[in-house]
Amino acid sequence: MSNRIVELEILRYNPETDEEPKFQTFSVPCAEDWVVLDAINYIKDELDRTLSYRWSCHMAVCGSCGMMINGEPMLSCKSFLRDLPDRIRVEPLTNFPIERDLVVVMDDFMDKLDSVKPFLIPREEKTVDEGEFLQTPAQLSKFKQYTLCINCTLCYAACPQYAHNEGFVGPAALALAHRYNLDSRDVGRSARADVVASNAGIWECSFVGACSEVCPHGVDPAAAIQQTKIASSVDYFRDMLIPGRRS
């Protein structure tokens, strides 16, 4: 272990004893290749066993350990201490209710994911014995980027629209809907439109673009939402101009 001592200011909240959250500072001796999560694990193991937070994979793919690190939503397993100052402020993700310490309430996000019908609604029925649906690498590459979301909810923590209107379906869920809408095997776009193209859906987004800036996997939800806006506007005008398109 190197000699570097890092001060972690962690926002603590125990609903059974605290009126409101307050910061607690821990001094942690850190190795140079540590991430913030390693320092938090050190606190848990050596200094204070009552600290609560979520984590699992330590390789930026399970999406559990999102936190505000010096005001920025980040995966704590991918936030290297070498890139951070000696004093680090760690808070639970903003825009979510705090359950306890760094653990936030995820219910709203899970409901939003569910609401956009994020599953394949197939163009044609086919049995397994008939083999796979064909899809060229070009068709795959159209939506591949939007399959990479790990549901870490950093984008919700970054989104000021979600902060002010919790009804907003939000970046990750809309990007996931877009992923299926773009899939050559899928015909579910109109089934998803009720939620996606509603006022609480894409039209609530004012293209701040913060979601895409904080995304740890380059999913770019902002792009997905703008593309959906264009597609659904085109739909709207088509329905108006071509008689009988929509009964």
Partner: peptide
């Protein structure tokens, strides 16, 4: 854990 956190993910 939430299903997406399960270790199949890795």
């Amino acid at each position: 854990v939430y299903p997406m956190r399960s270790h199949t993910v890795a």
